[in-house]
Design a protein around this nucleic acid. Sequence first.
DNA 1: AATTTGACGCTTT
DNA 2: AAAAGCGCCAAAT
Length: 113
Amino acid sequence: MSSVDANQTKDGFFAHVYEVVEQIPLGMVATYGQVATLAGGMGKARFVGFALHANPRPGIIPCHRVVFADGSLTSGFAFGGIDAQRRLLEGEGVNFLADGRVDLATCRWSAGT
DNA sequence: AATTTGACGCTTT
DNA sequence: AAAAGCGCCAAAT
């Protein structure tokens, strides 16, 4: 055992991802790349997806608030369908574009807001 | 122990 | 403007 806590060293980057995603306020969305960057891993955007799919905290981590860099939602097999996710975000107050994309221009979350 | 895959993002053709 | 490929690095098999 090192001086570090044996309680936190196991997740590393993933833990940061969960932290960041949990910080996303309602009515806002963040992109995988953005979360990855905030989590301290610029370029590890894919792991953000992995981390969210792992979903260690169902109900706590609003994975549906995390979208692609261009505002599109996850490939369809997640959440039970993009339409379901879109519905959810709309219910939270997120605006959508006619293309079926999240209006990042209005709902893009920033750290510290 | 090594190889393959992976909720992505960006650059290049 | 659109499509394809490459890159990141860790986890799962």
